[in-house]
Design a binder for these strands. Structure first.
Length: 848
RNA sequence: GCGGGCGUGGCGGAAUCGGUAGACGCAACGGACUUAAAAUCCGUUGGGCGUAAGCCCGUGGGGGUUCAAGUCCCCCCGCCCGCACCA
């Protein structure tokens, strides 16, 4: 009897082996087929969390599987190391953001290494390292030269007490999170990346990403938000000015009852100068946060400016102009016309301010004389009516005719509009990549010469003062202009951290290249990423920005590809029950003891505990389980197996102690198979049994492989369990048993890399599994001679029959009719029809 | 608000194409081994009726298409995620 499986010792042994032999070192080798498996890089927040364990387990299974399939695999890891939390931690703990970040990286790297991931650590990068952001600054300057970067005024959340710019998450119910002051919007001159110049390409190219989840492609499509419509000018009555609106429904112009403009529209500003009430209203609009949720969820409010505009199709018809809090200056022209009958928001607005509601699109089956709009707008297609020259046209034709007329009248033109906005990359913060620009009074914004890169962050900063430390640093920003040599100042904005993570996948390919961001000989071999794995929360922004960066890097000669990730998998989140004590304070799972009846008490005090919902693990709710503890207690293989069992990877998973125990038990059962191989019960040697087992083995190889290919890891685990059950109860041929156990550990190796290596070695193999190949199913063992099919009478199951696979329909029918259960169900009834689907089902339809 | 997703036993889930609903696991219960416990092993386990054979019901709710619906269509309910300065 062998000893109980010693996970810590075995895992340490193999991790050491992999490290010493540089097993996972990837080398550019154009003679071999490559496979780039990438998991999203973590933010070094302190310790790894279960979401990381899940993400990196999934990625590692792919990497190890592809390696066994014979690919030259690149599987790197790094750190998304700039960002707000480091500054917050620094303010709270009086540690420098760099100290905090690098010590977190050290801890988290050790934790990741204990997971047994097949990573090439030689390519590790941290985005906060000057050796990384130096190249990012170079890319920024290249983009600037290529016309992909520009500067314009944009709104930011402004805390008037702390005198600082706030992130959306720092604005809580309209107030600054620290000061509690009402947050204002303030215009700042900021840097933008011209992502909208690729709007159409980013949209069209989604169609080629057939290995992306449909939902992510759909989300991106909606985000880009292409809409066809028209710009239409409404002349201000009695003035030479005009208000240009954008509309997707010019066919409903005859139903217009007002024009609404943004509080930041030039006309609104001009009118507000002479109208204090309007100015106050505009100021109120500007207090709501910059996020769309605030705008859309908040009450729709308007202010009648008293100004009227002339309808483009009828000079005798004028409409009121409102300033409205739901019109965004950034989108379209910052002005809309309202057609209450055919737009819900316009309808709500019209009812609130007693504006006319005139229907101009008649739904099919409705009568023009009686059709009226109540509280629900009609937004569908129909026939135009009450619309002069458009009357009788369908919506599509009416759209075309309306645009044609607008263009004839010189009142506007047909256009395509995208919801996508240019990407504001300026952040008024310290812990980010400095934007390599020098502002000179005489020369304007001057790029930092490449020889002066990197523009490094100063280390001696003060974070206890409000505002941007780069701005109030005594010396850092004061430089001379590279062009005229006169005194000038550095740009003190740093980059949005999404910039850092928009090209790291390319940098990994030539991680140590010093003189340029990427080396063509590396990126041209490794890119694109074959399989990218990460959280669905990045479905829009990160992935869109990275797609843009690939295009921009192509335009500036760094890459040859458009699409960085040809395969994408988005995993679900890790959830856990949450707990609160009597005072409403959150409790950690280990502080709670569960009673048999399901109720919970505090483990130490015995006081009652409220068991809350199962929700995404988060530090704020304390419903977290530390992966480090789990790995110490059960080993990495158990943690990995838990992550792969039961739940499909794209869905949310609930962490449970019982589930971990179950995974741990399976590890024990695998280990005990060694005893079984060592002491085979060979005497009852039956050829039939051996054949049946071998058929099962090879069926499992085929199905398991298919499941891995399709990311159905939970099903693959279930099949491995079924095979384990079969091997445990198998009595007979020793060779077949050995074949089964060896196949099982080869299949499970990408999931459970440590124990499978150990079993493989104990079975007497000198070459480790990691150098081995993937099992192949023997086609001869996959064919089955008989099949079991269901027999239904009127759609209800009455019997099953087992018959030869190629049995003719006639024979299947006869066998079905001969079944006792079938006869009973058919008693006294006449056969109407018999449906025979070979290998599947027989359905006998009877009367009565 | 807009956009996206999900809903199947006590629980996580399985069901490749519309064709045997509940694979596999967890939990629970019963048993074996043990002085005992742990570990391990064996068995039972969707609900209802029935001594049994068997029958009926059942995939969030309602309707529809079909010989046949968890799967397709329409309506409704509930939950979750994203919304551009969190990453």
């Amino acid at each position: 009897m062998s000893e109980r499986y010693n996970a810590p010792a075995t895992e340490a042994k193999w991790q050491q082996y992999w490290q010493q032999n540089q097993t996972f070192k990837a080398v550019t080798d154009t003679s071999r087929p490559k496979y780039y498996a990438l998991s999203m890089l973590p933010y070094p927040s302190g310790r790894i969390h279960m979401g990381h364990v899940r993400n990196y387990t999934l990625g590692d299974v792919v990497a190890r599987y592809k390696r066994a399939m014979g690919f030259n695999v690149l599987h790197p890891m790094g750190w998304d190391a700039f960002g707000l939390p480091a500054e917050n931690a620094a303010r709270g703990n009086k540690t420098h953001p760099a100290t905090w970040t690098y010590s977190n990286i050290k801890v988290m790297k050790a934790e990741l290494q204990s997971m047994g991931l097949s990573l090439d650590w030689d390519r590790e990068l941290a985005t906060c390292d000057a050796s990384y952001y130096k190249h990012q600054q170079k890319l920024f300057l290249d983009f600037l030269k290529a016309g992909l970067v520009y500067r314009k005024e944009a709104w930011a959340n402004w805390d008037p007490v702390d005198n600082t710019v706030l992130a959306n998450e720092q604005v809580i119910e309209g107030r600054g999170w620290r000061s509690g002051a009402l947050v204002e919007k303030r215009l700042l001159s900021q840097w933008f990346l011209n992502i909208t110049s690729y709007s159409e390409d980013l949209l069209q190219s989604l169609k080629t990403l057939d290995r992306w989840p449909d939902k992510v492609r759909l989300m991106q499509e909606n985000w880009i938000g292409k809409s066809e419509g028209a710009y239409v000018n409404f002349a201000v009555a009695g003035k030479s000015e005009k208000v240009e609106v954008f509309t997707t429904r010019p066919d409903t112009l005859f139903g217009a009852s007002f024009v609404a403009i943004s509080a930041n529209h030039p006309l609104a500003k001009k009118l507000a100068e002479k109208d204090e009430t309007l100015a106050a209203f505009c100021a109120e609009c500007n207090r709501t946060g910059t996020s769309i949720v605030d705008i859309e969820k908040g009450e729709k409010k308007g202010f009648d400016t008293g100004t009227r505009v002339v309808h483009p199709f009828d000079s005798s018809w004028t409409l009121p102009v409102f300033v409205a809090n739901f019109v965004l200056v950034e989108y379209g022209t910052g002005a809309i016309f309202g057609c209450p009958a055919h737009d819900q928001r316009d309808l709500d607005f019209a009812r609130k301010y007693n504006l006319p509601v005139k229907a101009v699109v008649l739904p099919e089956g409705e009568n023009a004389a009686t059709f009226a709009v109540g509280d629900v707008a009609y937004t569908g297609d129909g026939k135009a009516f009450n619309s002069q020259f458009l009357d009788g046209l369908g919506t599509v034709e009416a759209l075309k005719a309306a645009i044609k007329k607008i263009e004839e009248l010189g009142a506007g033109k047909g256009t395509v509009q995208y919801r996508l906005r240019d990407w504001c990359v300026s952040r008024q913060r310290y812990w980010g990549c400095p934007i390599p620009i020098i502002h000179c009074e005489h020369c304007g914004a001057v790029p930092v010469p490449e020889k002066d890169l990197p523009v490094a962050l100063p280390e001696d900063i003060t974070l206890d003062k409000a505002g941007n430390p780069l701005d109030h640093h005594p010396t850092w920003k004061h430089v001379t202009c590279p062009q005229c040599g006169k005194p000038a100042v550095r740009e003190t904005d740093t980059c949005d951290t999404f910039v850092d993570s928009s090209w790291y996948y390319a940098r990994y390919c030539s991680a140590t290249c010093e003189d340029k961001p990427v080396d063509p000989k590396d990126v041209d071999y490794w890119l694109p990423v074959d399989q990218y794995v990460g959280g669905v929360e990045h479905a829009i922004l990160h992935l869109l920005y990275a797609r843009f960066f690939a295009r921009a890097m192509k335009a500036t000669g760094h890459l040859k590809i458009d699409e960085p990730f040809v395969g994408l998998f988005t995993q679900g989140m890790v959830c856990h029950e949450s707990y609160k004590d009597e005072t409403g304070a959150w409790l950690y799972p280990e502080e709670v003891k569960r009673n048999p009846d399901g109720s919970g008490v505090h483990a130490q005090t015995g006081r009652p505990v409220t068991i809350g919902r199962i929700e995404v693990m988060s530090k704020s709710k304390k419903n977290v389980v530390d992966p480090g503890k789990i790995i110490k207690l059960y080993g990495a293989d158990t943690a990995r197996l838990f992550m792969l069992s039961d739940s499909p990877p794209e869905r949310d998973i609930e962490w449970s102690e019982a589930g971990v125990e179950g995974s741990w038990r399976f590890i024990g059962r695998l280990w005990r198979l060694l005893d079984k191989v060592a002491a085979p019960t060979n005497e009852k040697d039956s050829a039939d049994k051996a054949l049946a087992l071998r058929q099962m083995i090879h069926r499992t190889i085929a199905d398991f492989t298919g499941d891995i290919e399709r990311f159905h890891f939970n099903r693959a685990v279930a099949r491995a369990r079924e095979m384990t059950n079969a091997l445990e109860s198998f009595e007979g041929d020793a060779a077949a048993l050995r074949e089964g156990v060896e196949t099982l550990v080869r299949l499970l190796n990408p999931m459970l890399p440590h124990i499978t290596e150990e079993i493989w070695q104990q079975l007497g193999h000198a070459t480790p599994l990691v150098q081995g190949t993937w099992p192949k199913a023997d086609p001869a063992l996959l064919v089955e001679s008989t099949t079991t099919i269901a027999v239904q009478v009127n759609g209800k199951l009455r019997a099953t029959i087992t018959i030869p696979k190629e049995a003719p329909p006639k024979a299947i029918e006869e066998a079905a009719l001969a079944e006792a259960g079938v006869k009973r169900a058919m008693e006294g009834k006449a056969v109407k029809k018999i449906i025979v689907v070979p290998n599947k089902i027989v359905n006998i339809v009877v009367t009565g």
